[in-house]
Amino acid sequence: MSLTLEHAHIAEAGIEMCSVRVGETLFGVPITKILEILGAPATRPVPLAPSFVGGLVHYRGEVLPAVSLRSLLGLGDSPERQDMLVFRGTDGYFGLLVDAVGEVLTVHPRDYETNPSTLDDRRKALFAGTYKLADRLLVMLDPDLLDPMRLVR
């Protein structure tokens, strides 16, 4: 996977991760992949859309499909408005809805481990591995795995 290559380049400096929370889990997204973070944008549901679509979001004149991480994880709808990260996908921009965006953390490749074999298949397909932080785990997210064009297949 391309991630290992990236690790080689930044082995010593560490990787800056934007931490996001969904449910009880802490996730991390490499900040270099994030175009923008929108605080609690308005979403518009799309009838008949695949279940992972959390709605449409207005972003700089475009109407983006927003992927709901909660739906992907089978967690059910969030009671509150969610924050959104914007990524560049294979078919234009797309958004990722998360419960909350936290601080930027620096992680080190030496703390990285691949997905545990006990993880369910759905999560294995979505998670890009785990970083062991001092007090907890940070699940790595790779936007390429969350691209709607990929999820739709």
Partner: peptide, 10 residues
């Protein structure tokens, strides 16, 4: 505004 391909399929 065009819809993303993933939604055009609807």
């Amino acid at each position: 505004k065009p819809l993303s391909s993933a939604l055009k399929e609807i």
